[in-house]
Simulated assay, not measured.
Amino acid sequence: MERWHRSLRAQFLSELDTTHVHDLADLNARLWAWVEQIYHRTEHSGLCNQTPLARYQQDLPRIGTLGARAAQLDELFLHRIERYVRRDGTVSFQGKRFEVPYELVGKTVLLVVDPHTGTVKGVESEAGEPLGAATLLDAVGNRTRKRRKSQPETVEPAVTGHDAPIENAAHGPNLIELAYQRHYAREL
């Protein structure tokens, strides 16, 4: 990048006649003309005395399209930050606490973060498998929430449909827990 800026200053800015530049569009038009007509067609020692255009054309057979992977491109650039899940089912990031699935308590997970916006997208295992959502903790709203420790799973397979029993929370999973288990069954 330093070499690019040096070339830009030495070859473009030093030669630019500002009497012809009336606005940003004029400046951009002149810059693109210089890049296309001069910079891309001048031999560069860093490219073994080839022009950037010739070097690009040489590599064209090896350049492929992303195809269906283009939709996943943003995911590849998300940051993964290791965090320990506290006993209350939370992790911290940039001075904020996030709730994660309670069954992750005591484990180390990867918090998936968008580096551009600083938003937390979710939680993954070290193998990159999604483990669930990470939601910003509402300390005021959650201060009176009753929490119960996770129990070992001894639940029989649930009956689906309208005839499915909705069990009391003290005796087994309720509708919310069943929905949660069904939703994350693919990801766990």
Rank of each mutant, 00 (worst) to 15 (best):
A25L: 00
T90K: 08
A133Q: 12
A68G: 01
P152Q: 10
V100C: 06
A185K: 13
H162I: 13
T117M: 07
A133S: 14
V112K: 02
S150C: 11
E177Q: 02
G64D: 09
E153V: 08
P130Q: 12
H171E: 15
L110I: 04
E99W: 07
V35Y: 13
E177N: 10
R6A: 02
G132K: 11
E177G: 03
E156D: 14
L60N: 02
V159R: 13
H44C: 03
R143W: 01
R182I: 08
R145M: 14
S150A: 13
H183V: 13
R69D: 07
R6V: 02
R145E: 14
G89Y: 04
V113I: 07
E177K: 08
P52D: 09
R186Y: 13
Q37N: 11
G106I: 11
H20P: 00
W34K: 05
E36H: 14
I63K: 07
A70R: 05
L47A: 01
L53S: 10
R41N: 14
A134E: 07
Q58P: 00
R6C: 06
E82S: 11
V109F: 05
I176F: 10
L31R: 03
P115V: 11
I176G: 06
H44L: 08
A10I: 00
V105M: 04
R83W: 02
G64A: 12
G132D: 05
R87N: 02
V91F: 00
